[in-house]
């Protein structure tokens, strides 16, 4: 029962707190529905639950009985920006589903392909930056993570030890 609730809230549906277990959309589609483009801050998919968002969206996420799983904050390890101190500066609620004027905007879509790795047993390189996403667990562990990017080893906490960044293209030349 709890497992179902966890899945439902992680997949999430806006607006409202109540999870909709019948949502047939994939987590990737749900994820995209909450963002203007890949990289945009998601809108808040539930009604206001109090002033301290980090009470539930902490470093590891919280299982809320009867409600589901509250995903971790990717900013919990962000330093120097007070990024976690005023969440509604970037994440807004939805008061309506309507539009003022229709829009033809099409945002950047999330890359759903697998990341690259040197060989079968090599750890994949990290295909994106970490800025404001320092807490890898937010997207790569737990029910809110898509299968393709969910880690098999959530107990290991120093991800950069094995997963190298891609800072440049091309190969080394003397």
């Amino acid at each position: 029962m709890l497992g179902l609730a966890i899945v439902a809230l992680a997949a999430g549906c806006a607006p409202g707190v109540a999870a909709q277990a019948s949502d047939a959309r994939s987590p990737a589609v749900v994820r995209a529905s909450r963002r203007a483009y890949d990289g945009a801050p998601p809108v808040i998919p539930h009604a206001p639950l109090g002033p301290d968002c980090t009470a539930c969206h902490d470093e590891t996420g919280v299982v809320l009985p009867e409600l589901g799983f509250s995903p971790p904050s990717p900013h919990e390890r962000t330093q120097g920006l007070s990024a976690a101190s005023r969440c509604v500066q970037c994440h807004v609620y939805r008061e309506t589903d309507g539009e003022f004027v229709a829009s033809s905007f099409v945002g950047l879509r999330q890359d759903l392909r697998r990341g690259t790795r040197q060989h079968t047993w090599a750890p994949p390189v990290r295909p994106h930056g970490r800025f404001l996403r320092e807490n890898c667990a937010a997207c790569h562990t737990g029910p809110a993570a898509r299968e393709e990017i969910r880690t098999t080893h959530p107990e290991r906490v120093r991800c950069e030890q094995c997963h190298a960044a891609v800072e440049a293209r091309g190969t080394f030349r003397r």
């Binding site: 497992g3 987590p27 879509r109 994106h128 737990g142 029910p143 393709e148």
Partner: peptide
């Protein structure tokens, strides 16, 4: 809990395959 989301993850994979087939696969960073 991961086991409980397998059904959703399958749809993710299907979504990725559909996007790839449509040629609409998004490009990231």
């Amino acid at each position: 809990a991961t086991a409980g989301v397998a059904a959703f993850s399958c749809r993710d994979r299907a979504e990725a395959e559909r996007l790839a087939a449509d040629g609409a696969l998004a490009r990231g960073e």
